Amino acid sequence: MKYTVGQIARFIRIQKGIKQSFVSDKLGFKSPSSYSEIEKGVRHLSADKIPILADALDVSIEELFFEDKIRKMRNDNDVIA
């Protein structure tokens, strides 16, 4: 199964105990619901925001795109919807 960047970001965010409002603020969104739409796949994240998202989640950009690492983590906790 292929995961979206939003789904991977959600998994990482939950694992690290980071609130949506924190990530939303870092990305410059007016409300957490805008970021929530990215996690749900309703809205896409522009390329210029990818490094900011990675920084907010304290991960490398590669970790947002290479799902083999996520698949391994998923075995420990099934939070990716």
Rank of each mutant, 00 (worst) to 15 (best):
I14S: 02
Q15T: 03
Q15N: 14
K16I: 00
K16Y: 11
K16S: 10
K16A: 09
I18E: 13
K19W: 00
S21M: 06
S21C: 02
F22G: 01
F22M: 05
V23K: 11
V23E: 09
V23N: 12
S24N: 03
D25F: 05
K26V: 08
K26Y: 07
K26M: 15
G28P: 07
F29S: 01
F29P: 03
S31D: 11
P32H: 02
P32N: 02
S33V: 04
S33A: 11
S33N: 12
S33Q: 14
S36N: 08
E37I: 00
E37N: 13
I38T: 01
I38S: 08
G41H: 06
G41R: 02
G41N: 04
V42H: 14
V42Q: 14
R43C: 04
H44N: 11
H44Y: 09
L45F: 11
L45A: 08
L45E: 10
S46R: 12
S46L: 03
S46H: 09
S46G: 06
D48K: 10
D48H: 13
K49Y: 06
P51I: 10
L53Y: 07
A54H: 04
A54Y: 05
D55C: 03
D55S: 09
D55Q: 09
D55T: 05
A56N: 11
L57C: 09
D58T: 07
V59P: 04
V59E: 09
V59I: 14
S60T: 14
S60E: 12
S60W: 03
I61H: 01
E62L: 01
E62F: 13
E62R: 04
E63N: 06
E63Q: 13
E63S: 13
F65D: 05
F66M: 12
E67A: 14
E67M: 10
D68W: 02
K69S: 11
I70F: 15
I70H: 14
R71H: 12
R71M: 10
R71E: 15
K72M: 08
M73H: 04
R74K: 15
R74E: 15
N75D: 03
N75P: 00
D76H: 07
N77F: 11
